[in-house]
Computed example of a mutant assay.
Amino acid sequence: MEQSTSVLILGGSGQAGGDAAALLRRWHPALPLTIAGRDIDRAQRMADELGAATAVTIDLRRSDLGLPADHHYSAVVAALWDDHLNGLHYAQHRGLPYLSISSGLVEIAPEVVASAQRAHATPVLLASHYCAGATVLATLDAARALDRIDTIRISAVLDELDTGGPAGRADLERWSTATSAGLVRRDGVFTWIDGSAVQADVTSTDGTVLPGQSIAILDVPSLAHATGAPNVRFDFAVGESAGRRRGEAASFEVRIDLEGAGPAGAPFSTSRYLVHPAGQRPLTALGIALGVERLLGLRGEAVPPGIHTPETLIDPAYAVERLVEIGAVFVGAQVNR
């Protein structure tokens, strides 16, 4: 599909937005991109590095984002926290596909309501999942080995030196302020937990156990509804990653544990780690790029107007191919903890 207008990436000179733009440039060399940020010099440097890209400044307090009326775009990507939701409104009023990654489960209600009120206007991809949906997609790919899934447990280690740029750190601070409770699915019921129930040990790839806790994250309802699993939990620990303990860069580590029944109906369990030696940044960028590619119709059928999540639009097997392509690896883990 030819794109004559540009993808507007709000926060495109930041870590997640910039790396997503670089992936899109690699996959689709002729795709026009617009890097939008508050610092025009930084945005222009990014645009120059990408090629076939322009740079603009934006004002998220304005409904027109401070952009000239004669500028036209093919999609809007919010790779930062837009507390006025003006990026979404800008996309809706112009009928443009929209993607966001920073609302999180605890802040998503205003975005959902705004999207629902104009559901006919444009496709909206809500990707405020861990790494913009990359973990959900990797889990769903692993789930193909089971005929029935009873339990999903995701255990993630975020290195304290790998919390992203200022925007990423601000997201984590807001989410932790909003709630210290975790959201799990237990026996088919979405349940808030706190106190001792929220605490969890998270085991790193080298066997080191870090203290963590269940968190309220969109991965839980996405995986529960996509698989029908009655028990879903996402545990999260911040600490030194296995990569840094080896004297290398901060690494990305997510353990995916699945329990259920295999093709013959017998009990079946599988456990594996999704690892990247360069931390969470490449995976978050990949999640964004996969979403943009899909929204633009560069892969797959046209996306209809309405509210979407990553697993409803993106093929998990294709996502895993792209994960491996950017240097992620899957490592087997012992089933018994």
Rank of each mutant, 00 (worst) to 15 (best):
E111V: 01
A181W: 11
L8C: 04
D48H: 07
I154N: 04
R144P: 01
G12P: 01
H72I: 02
A30V: 08
A264Y: 09
V198A: 15
A285S: 11
R118L: 13
G212D: 09
R62W: 00
G11W: 14
D187M: 08
H84P: 00
A121C: 10
R255I: 03
D141Q: 14
A78M: 06
A328R: 04
H120Q: 13
G247P: 06
S103D: 11
V198N: 14
A78Q: 11
A16V: 15
G104V: 06
D141R: 14
V106L: 08
I40N: 00
H225L: 10
Q92H: 09
D141F: 13
A226V: 05
R281D: 13
A197M: 07
D159F: 09
S214T: 14
G262L: 13
E293R: 12
A333P: 03
T227M: 04
A216K: 15
H225I: 13
S176Y: 07
P68R: 07
V232G: 10
P282G: 01
L258C: 05
L125M: 13
L65R: 02
F234A: 11
A43L: 02
H93A: 10
L223W: 00
R244N: 09
T34S: 07
P32F: 04
D70Q: 15
D141T: 08
A200R: 09
A237W: 02
S6G: 02
R337Q: 14
E111R: 13
T208N: 04
I217V: 13
A333H: 12
H120V: 07
L88I: 06
T208Y: 07
G87L: 01
P282F: 03
R281V: 12
I307W: 07
A319R: 00
I101D: 01
L283K: 05
G287A: 02
A328Y: 08
P211G: 00
A156E: 10
A319V: 08
T205I: 08
A200C: 10
D39G: 02
A91M: 03
S6R: 12
G182Y: 05
V184P: 09
D39I: 05
R169L: 09
V184W: 01
G306V: 03
G66H: 12
T227S: 07
L313V: 07
Q44E: 14
T54N: 10
L296Y: 07
I9K: 00
H276F: 04
G195P: 06
L85H: 13
G104R: 05
G260K: 01
Q117D: 15
G18M: 02
G165T: 00
A226N: 02
A249T: 15
T312W: 12
L10N: 01
D206V: 00
A22R: 15
E293V: 02
E160S: 07
H89M: 08
R233Y: 02
V320I: 13
I154W: 08
A167C: 01
G300P: 03
V113Y: 14
L99T: 03
A134M: 03
T135H: 15
M1G: 15
D235T: 15
Q213N: 13
T205H: 12
A242N: 11
G14M: 05
E325P: 02
A181Y: 12
D82Q: 00
H308R: 08
T135R: 01
L283Q: 05
D41Q: 12
W81L: 07
